[in-house]
Nucleic acid binder design. Structure first.
Length: 728
DNA sequence: GTAGTCCATATG
DNA sequence: ATATGGACTACG
C-alpha cells in the first residue's frame, strides 16, 4: 500500500490534492514540498498523510523544499479562515506561503573592500583617487567606494585583481536586532503601571502551573494621549523576557519612522517592520528570522498576521477600530478578528487597543468575552483638549469661504504663539461638485452615480468611487460655453488656497491619501509635520490616524456633519470615532490644546457626545438604538448572488450557513434576475456571498461594490465584517 | 496560478 | 478561413 500525502496548493482550490510519497521521502504535516501540477512543478504544503490508496494514477511528490514547515496553529489558521470567509483553502494558504520568487531566492553575497597596503603595480590617476579614499583602512561597499572616489566600478575590480584592495564578505545587516526588555526607559505614570499589571495579569506564560489563567482577548481602551503604547510595550517586554515573540499589528499608514523610534526609545533598537513596501531578499530574511524565532518583535500591517512565528507569545492590535484592518480583495478578512483567532489557536494573549473602540469590540468587552482595561486620563497630567462648537448658522464665513471668523481668529493666535494648527476636512481634492453656470450641467461619473471631484493640482475631474478620471474641460461638454464652470463646496485643496490667502507667510501642507509622490513620501511628510516643520496642516482623515504631532495645539474641524447623512448604518459610529480621534490630536505635547468644531447641527447626538466628551453615553445610546430597532449590535446577514447554473450550490451554501453553530440573522439567495439590475451590468455571471456584520442596506452595498469595477468572474466570494467569536 | 478548451466575434 | 479574446475548467 503506497503512502499518500494530501498536499494543499496555494491556488484557488478548495481541497488538497493527493500525491504518492516516493520511497525514502519522510514527510510530516506542514512540510513544504514541490509537486507536479499539470504540465508544471508547484509548491505545496503537506496537509495530511495516510496510507489509503486514493486511486492508482496518482503522481508522486517531487521532493521536500528547504523551508521551515508550517506549524500546527498556522495550518489551523488557514483552515479556519478558509471556512470562515468561504474562501478556497488554497487561497488562504497563499497568504501564508508567499514564497520568494526566483530572483529573490538567489542570495548574492555582499562584498566590501579594504586597502591592503600593497601598492598597485600600475598606478593610474583613477586608481590613486580610489586609494586616497580607501587609505583610512575602513570597509566599504564596492560601488560606494567607486562613487566616493568618482571613478567607475571597474577600476575597483582592477585594484582587487591587482592585490591593492582585498574583498571581504560581509554579514548582511541583522534584519531583526534583539530588543532589550530592560533598556532604561522613562518611568510609567501610576495609572499606566496599574494598567500594565491589569493587562499582563492572566497571561498564560505569566502564571505558574496550577495557577488560573485568563486568556480572553483584552481591550486596552485609553483616551488619546493616555500612553497606551507605553502600556502595551510593557506587555511586549514581559513577552520577550519569556523568550516568546510578539507581533504588533498596525494600520499600514500608522507604521511610521516616528513609531519605530518610539519603540527604539523603549527597547534600544527599532523593531523588525513588515509591510507591503518591504520586498525581495529583506522580506525573505525577515520571514526566516520569524520562523526561527530570532525576530522577537515584529511590527506590521495586516499581512504580518500570516507570518510563521515559531513561539508566538503576544499579539497587539493597535487602533483596533481602524477600517484598514479589513482586507477587501482576494480573501476577505478583518485582521483584528483574525488576530483574535490566531491568538486562540496559538494559545497566546491578544491585546486590542483604541481610544475609540469599534462598537462590536465594546460589546464584546461589555459581555465579558473580552477583558477591559481602561486608561481614562492623559499621561503626565495633561488635559484633554477643550472642545467647542462653532454654530455655522450663526458664524457664517464669507461667500465662497469655508473658515468661519472664530476659527480664523483661533488659527491666527495659535500661529502667533508659534504653535501648530490643523484644519481637518474629510474631503480630498478641490471641490466635490463641478457645474456649468450656463446650462447647469453637473459633472458625473460614467460608471457610478457620483459627482466627479475636481482636483485642481492635477487639472482633472476624478471619481472617488471607481477612480475614473477625465481632464477638467475648458468649455462645458454639454453646452460648449467657455470658462463658466463653478466649483461647489470645499475639498482640502480649496481650504489650502483659503489658508494661503489668510496666512501668506506660513508654511502650509496638505496631507491626503493622494499625496503626490506616494505612500513613502507621505510618511516622510507626516514625520516632518511631527518635527514641527510646518505651521498649518490641512488634512483628510489620515491625519487622525496614529500620529503624534507634539507642536499641534489647535484642531479645527471644518465640517463635522460630513458623513452623518450617509445611509451607512455605521455613519454615527464612524463619524464619532473620526472626530474624537482628530480632535484628540491637539495638546499632546507640552502645551494644552483645544478643538473648534464647525457644525450646522450642534445638537446631533454624535456632535453632542463629542462636545461633552461623553463617549460612554454615545456607545450606550448607539447600542440601545440598534436593540430598539430589533437589530443585534452586531449580527450577520448572508446573501448569495448566483448565476442560474450555480443556484444549487448557493442554496446548499446558504443552508450550511443557516445550520452553523451561530447562524447568520438571515440568508438570502438571489439569482441574477433578482439582484438589483444596476448590479448585473453587462454579462456578469457571478456568485457573490456577502456576510455583513449588521443589517446593512445590501443593495446599496452591492451597488457600491460593483461600481468599484471589480473583475467579476465565476466564483467570486465576498465575506466582510463577520464576528469570529461566534465561530470559536 | 496557468494551460488548454470552447465559442463568439473580428479580420483578411 | 483564420486570428483574437473571454469564459470556463482542470490541474491529484
Amino acid at each position: 500500500m503506497p503512502f499518500i500525502a494530501e498536499i494543499l496548493i496555494p491556488l484557488a482550490l478548495d481541497t488538497p490534492y493527493s500525491y504518492v510519497v516516493p520511497a525514502g521521502l519522510d514527510l510530516a504535516a506542514g512540510d513544504v514540498v514541490q509537486v507536479p501540477l499539470g504540465p508544471r512543478e508547484i509548491v505545496g504544503v503537506v496537509w495530511g498523510l495516510g496510507d489509503t490508496a486514493g486511486g492508482s494514477n496518482l503522481r508522486p511528490v517531487t521532493g521536500r523544499l528547504p523551508y521551515p514547515p508550517l506549524s500546527d496553529p498556522l495550518r489551523s489558521l488557514v483552515d479556519w479562515i478558509a471556512r470562515y470567509t468561504l474562501a478556497p483553502k488554497g487561497s488562504a494558504l497563499a497568504m501564508v506561503l508567499r514564497l520568494p520568487d526566483e530572483a529573490a531566492a538567489v542570495e548574492t553575497v555582499r562584498v566590501a573592500v579594504r586597502i591592503t597596503g600593497k601598492p598597485p603595480a600600475r598606478p593610474t590617476a583613477a586608481r590613486s583617487k580610489i586609494l586616497a579614499v580607501a587609505v583610512d583602512g575602513a570597509l566599504r561597499g564596492k560601488s560606494a567606494l567607486a562613487k566616493e572616489a568618482g571613478v567607475s566600478l571597474s577600476v575597483v575590480d582592477g585594484l582587487i585583481d591587482d592585490g591593492a584592495l582585498e574583498a571581504v564578505a560581509v554579514e548582511p545587516e541583522p534584519v531583526a536586532p534583539r530588543p532589550d526588555p530592560d533598556f532604561p526607559r522613562t518611568p510609567l505614570s501610576p495609572a499606566q503601571a496599574e494598567a500594565v499589571t491589569a493587562l499582563v495579569e492572566g497571561f498564560p506564560w505569566r502564571r505558574g502551573p496550577g495557577e488560573e489563567t485568563d486568556n480572553r482577548p483584552v481591550l486596552l481602551e485609553g483616551v488619546t494621549g493616555s500612553g497606551k503604547t507605553e502600556v502595551y510595550f510593557e506587555a511586549v517586554a514581559a513577552c520577550i523576557r519569556e523568550g516568546r515573540q510578539a507581533l504588533i499589528l498596525m494600520p499600514e499608514i500608522a507604521l511610521t519612522a516616528q513609531f519605530l523610534d518610539r519603540f527604539a526609545a523603549r527597547f534600544g533598537v527599532r523593531p523588525a517592520a513588515w509591510h507591503s513596501g518591504i520586498g525581495g531578499k529583506r522580506r525573505e530574511r525577515l520571514r526566516l528570522a520569524v520562523a526561527e524565532g530570532e525576530a522577537l518583535v515584529v511590527v506590521g500591517a495586516r499581512s504580518a498576521l500570516f507570518l510563521p512565528f515559531a513561539r508566538l507569545g503576544l499579539i497587539v492590535v493597535d487602533e483596533e477600530h481602524e477600517t484598514a484592518y479589513k482586507q477587501e480583495d482576494g480573501v476577505h478578512y478583518h485582521a483584528r478578528d483574525m488576530a483574535v483567532v490566531r491568538g486562540r489557536l496559538e494559545g497566546c494573549p491578544v491585546v486590542l487597543t483604541s481610544a475609540t473602540p469599534a462598537i462590536e469590540t465594546r460589546v464584546n468587552a461589555a459581555r465579558g468575552r473580552y477583558r477591559h482595561v481602561l486608561l481614562p486620563e492623559r499621561f503626565g497630567g495633561r488635559r484633554l483638549p477643550d472642545i467647542a462648537a462653532i454654530d455655522m448658522r450663526l458664524d457664517q464665513p464669507e461667500r465662497g469661504r469655508f473658515l468661519s471668523p472664530p476659527l480664523v481668529n483661533a488659527v491666527k493666535s495659535t500661529l502667533e504663539r508659534g504653535e501648530q494648527a490643523l484644519l481637518f476636512l474629510n474631503r480630498r481634492g478641490y471641490a466635490p461638485l463641478t457645474l456649468c453656470r450656463a446650462c447647469g450641467h453637473r459633472y458625473q461619473c460614467k460608471n457610478c452615480s457620483t459627482w466627479l471631484v475636481e482636483h485642481r493640482f492635477r487639472r482633472a475631474l476624478v471619481c472617488h468611487q471607481c477612480g475614473y478620471t477625465e481632464r477638467r474641460p475648458e468649455a462645458c461638454t454639454e453646452c460648449g460655453t467657455f470658462d463658466n464652470l463653478t466649483a461647489c463646496g470645499p475639498g482640502v485643496e480649496r481650504i489650502a488656497e483659503e489658508a494661503a490667502a489668510l496666512f501668506p507667510d506660513r508654511r502650509i501642507v496638505v496631507l491626503s491619501s493622494d499625496f503626490p509622490g506616494g505612500a513613502e513620501r507621505l510618511r516622510q511628510e507626516l514625520d516632518a509635520v511631527a518635527a514641527g516643520e510646518c505651521d498649518v496642516v490641512i488634512g483628510t482623515q489620515l491625519v487622525a490616524k496614529g500620529h503624534n504631532f507634539p507642536f499641534l495645539t489647535l484642531v479645527g474641524v471644518l465640517d463635522a456633519d460630513i458623513g452623518l447623512t450617509s445611509g451607512d448604518p455605521r455613519a454615527a459610529e464612524r463619524t464619532f470615532q473620526l472626530l474624537q480621534q482628530v480632535t484628540g490630536r491637539a495638546g499632546r505635547g507640552e502645551k494644552p490644546g483645544r478643538a473648534l468644531v464647525q457644525t450646522y447641527q450642534p445638537d446631533h447626538p454624535v456632535i453632542a457626545a463629542l462636545l461633552s466628551g461623553d463617549a460612554e453615553r454615545f456607545y450606550a445610546e448607539e447600542i440601545q438604538a440598534r436593540e430598539a430597532a430589533g437589530l443585534p449590535p452586531f449580527g450577520r446577514l448572508a446573501a448569495l448572488i448566483v448565476s442560474a447554473s450555480e443556484r444549487e450550490t448557493a442554496e446548499a451554501h446558504g443552508q450550511a450557513l443557516a445550520r452553523a453553530a451561530d447562524p447568520p440573522d438571515g440568508v438570502m439567495v438571489l439569482g441574477p434576475a433578482e439582484a438589483p439590475l444596476a448590479l448585473v451590468r453587462g454579462r456578469y455571471r457571478f456568485r457573490l456571498l456577502v456576510k455583513t456584520e449588521r443589517n446593512v442596506d445590501l443593495q446599496a452595498y452591492l451597488r457600491a461594490w460593483i461600481a468599484r469595477g471589480p473583475k467579476v468572474r465565476g466564483n467570486v466570494r465576498v465575506a466582510i465584517d463577520v464576528d469570529p467569536q461566534s465561530f470559536l
